[in-house]
Amino acid sequence: MCSLVNNLVDQLRAVDSNISADIMEAISKQVLQKYPCLEKRDDDGFGNGLSYITLKQKMINRNVYLNRLNETSKKSIPVFQKHRNRRAGTVQEYWKTSSDHCPKEVFSKLRRDEPSLLTEEFLEQSQAFVRSRLDQNKNLNLILSELPVLRRRKLLEFHFKKSTGIDIGMLSTYFTAKREKIIGYSTTRKMLKLQSSSTDYEVFDFIAKLVGEDLSDLVLKKEIGTGIDDVHEESAGPVIICIDTGNGTWMFYVFADHTRITEGTTDVIGAIQDLMCVQYVHSFMYLKSAAKFLELVQEYFLKLFPTKGSKSNATRVGKQQRIVQKIIASLSDFGDD
C-alpha cells in the first residue's frame, strides 16, 4: 500500500506539488473501482464503502511530507497560522498591513503607554508596526512586556474594527436592545428563569445554557485579595478572569497563554467585548467548552458572519453549528405575535 501511495503521489506531483484534497479523493475512488481487492471488508464480506478515505489520507500525508522537505530552508510558520480557521471572519487586506519599520516618534509614544496618546490618527500611523509585533513568533508574555500598550482597550478595539470591519461597541448596543426580550424568552424555558433585576452576568449565563454550555467555563472567578501576579491559568485559550474586589464589585481581565492581555474592566459586557477583540486581533480559536456561546455572541450581537471557516471547534453539520442557529432563530421569533 505504501508503494502504491508513493507511486500515485509522485505521478501527481509531476503536474503540481499543491494537490487539492478533492483531487486526492477522486483518484482514490478510481483506484478502488479498478482494484476492488483494496476495499476493506469484514469477515462476512461487507465493506462500508469508505476505504477510499484511508487511501486519500495516506496520499495527503505523503504529499505534505514531501512539501515539508522542500520548505526546510523557509522561515518558520508564525503561531497564528497553526490553525487554518484562526483568521475566520477577518478581512484579508488587514493582515497584509504589517511592517517592522516604525518611525522613532511613533515608537516612543508606544513605549510611553499613555491612553491619551492613542488617537485615531496615531493608531493609523502605528497599525503596521503593531501588527508586526503581534505576529511575532515569540512568547506572548514577552511581547506584551516589551510593549504594554498592546493591552490598551483603544488599541485592541481599533485593530478589531480594522480586521473585521465592525465596531466592537455593537455588542453592547445589541445586548442592551435585546436584554428585555431575552429575559422574556427565559420564561418559556424550563431552565433558569430571569427577572428584570437579573444581572448581565446571569443573562449571559442563560444564553450559554441555551446552547448547552456554562459561562463559568469561560469566566473564572477568583476570591477577594487575589493579585494579578497570582493568576496562573492552565488554559492556553482566552478566558476571562473575574477578581472579587469587595462590596459586590469585580474586575475582569482577559488571559491567554498564561498572560494578561487586557487592561481590565469593571463590567461583564465590557469583558465580553475585550474577549472578542482578543479573539480576532490575536487570532485565537474559541475555547472549546464555550465555543457555541461565543459563536452565538459573534452572530447575534456582533453580526459577524465569516464567509469561510469558523473560530469554533464545536462539532458542526455542514458549515453551521445547528444549535446556535436554532437558538438565534427562536430568540428572533420570540414576541413576533
Rank of each mutant, 00 (worst) to 15 (best):
G264T: 01
V239S: 05
D217V: 02
I269G: 02
H258G: 11
W250E: 14
K221H: 11
E295W: 02
I243H: 00
G270A: 09
L275F: 06
T266H: 12
E295D: 15
E213K: 06
D214W: 10
V281C: 12
S289F: 04
P238M: 06
I240P: 04
S197R: 09
Y253C: 00
F301S: 00
A290W: 09
V281W: 00
I243Y: 02
A271G: 01
I207W: 08
Y286G: 02
F252C: 03
G270W: 01
L302H: 01
F305A: 05
V219L: 13
V211I: 10
E202P: 02
D274S: 11
V231S: 04
I240G: 02
Y286C: 03
A291P: 02
K222W: 07
A208Q: 06
V278A: 13
F252D: 04
G237S: 15
E213F: 04
E263L: 07
T259L: 10
F255C: 12
F252V: 04
L215E: 08
K222N: 05
E263Y: 01
V281M: 07
G248Q: 04
L304C: 09
S198M: 06
F255K: 10
S283F: 03
I224R: 14
H232G: 01
V203T: 10
G264N: 06
N247A: 10
D217K: 12
T245E: 13
V254W: 12
E263P: 03
I224P: 01
K288V: 03
T259A: 07
I272F: 12
T262K: 09
D205Y: 05
L218V: 08
Y300T: 01
T265Q: 08
Y253T: 04
T245K: 15
E263S: 12
A291F: 02
I272R: 01
Q298F: 02
E223C: 10
F252H: 15
G227C: 07
R260A: 12
T245A: 12
D200L: 08
V203K: 01
I240R: 05
G270M: 02
H232S: 10
G270Q: 02
